Computed example of a mutant assay.
Amino acid sequence: MLRPLLVVTAQELRTRIFDGTALLVALVAPVLLATIFGLALGGDDPPLRATVGYVDLDGGEFPASVRGEMAAAEELKGVLTLRDLPTREEARRQVDDGVIGAAIVFLPGFSQSVGAGRGGEVTVLSSPEAPLAGVLAQAVVDRMSALVEARTLAVRASIAAGVPGAEVQAFVERNGANGPALGLSADSLSGGKVDLAVYYGTGMAALFAFFVAGTSVRGLLTERRLGTLDRTLVAPIPPWTPALAKALVGFGLALASMCATWASSVLIFGTTWGDPVAVLALCAAHAAAAATITMLVASRARTESQADGVIMGVSFVVAFFGGSLVPLHNLPEFLQKAALLTPNGWISSGLIELAGSGGGIASVTAPLGVLCAIALVAGGLSAAGLRRGLTR
């Protein structure tokens, strides 16, 4: 049973390679398009920028100290621009007009209230049009709240211990109860950056896997029309041999196409798709899903032109909704959820996870499992369809 399959598969592979279409569709087209997209749109995601207004209506030492530490924070250099504003109303106007993204407002008497152990009030003005600025401003206020709480507790404890009111501030500072320094973590701003050349490289690889597999399995319809399939089935071989051979060739060429696009992305742009073993596993699972889905189309189609039209339509639909043509994070939220209904969405999310996090195969078990499940279901349905009607 294995020998006839190998012979038919080898013959099909030779035919595909010598007619030239396999090399064009599997290697030249995806590599060329991925390179063009990478050159035109590649590079890291645009750098993060935020302008935050600073309104000090208190005039005390604490607001001035916070501003100085924000301006000096290494992790915010090149990210945060502070703009001093005279009033809360002016800050609100500039936030509404989009001049600044957010504003931090210290109300009058803030320092005096903190020094007396009563805490203090700080207002954050933000706009949904500039979420990063709002996140930064709120992060500063959250950290500052910890400082104020520590200072308040220290002042109350000092007063309860009998320290004279005039000496409380000096006592608190002398005993190091000012609270921790204002430190801002860059973790929420970093991590997960992926070169756009990787997005478009993986996208072209996933898209052309369908085209490559489709051109192979449609050959079944051509052979049925010409009568060569009937003659092949007369030979003493299992009846499923021709279909399985074409599916294997489609899978192999689709995987080779994805690996060629992967290699070109790494060599040309110096990018990384992540752990090689995990990337190869995802590519193999997606190639299997593409081969079985196109085989399912061939099992239901009546003519080659019908199969070509359906395969092309399916390829572009799953490519668009699956993030192969547009990065997933640029799609609306409901389309990001719809992407999980497509094999392209799963391989896109898996490869982005590998490239962004540096994780291994354990980090993409869900995409691998779903892609394998898609391949099994589509393979079973196509086998049933081929059994019923391919030779008619």
Score class of each variant (00 low, 15 high):
F211G: 02
A116Y: 01
L27C: 05
V163L: 01
P343R: 02
H329G: 05
L282C: 03
V198S: 14
V364K: 00
D230T: 14
L340M: 13
L39W: 06
G176V: 02
C372V: 13
I268H: 07
A177K: 06
V326C: 06
L371R: 01
D19P: 02
G162P: 08
S188C: 08
L13K: 07
A366G: 08
E333M: 08
E129M: 11
F18D: 01
F171L: 00
G43F: 03
R88N: 03
S126E: 15
R92N: 00
G313F: 04
L296I: 11
V198I: 13
T9F: 10
G369S: 04
V141N: 07
F321Y: 10
R156F: 06
A154E: 04
A205S: 10
D58S: 10
L57V: 07
L76I: 10
W346I: 04
G120S: 03
S382I: 02
A247L: 14
F251T: 02
V95I: 12
L13E: 01
A213Y: 01
L340E: 05
A362W: 07
A291S: 13
A137R: 02
D230Q: 10
Q138Y: 13
P164F: 08
P30G: 08
L125T: 07
N330T: 00
A383P: 10
V95M: 09
T228R: 10
L226F: 08
S158K: 01
P108G: 05
V168N: 00
R151K: 13
K193L: 15
I17S: 03
T272M: 09
A243Q: 09
L341D: 09
N175H: 12
A378W: 04
L280M: 07
P343E: 05
G98N: 09
F251A: 03
A278C: 13
D45M: 11
N330L: 11
N178K: 14
A91R: 00
L196C: 06
A10H: 14
V277S: 12
D44W: 00
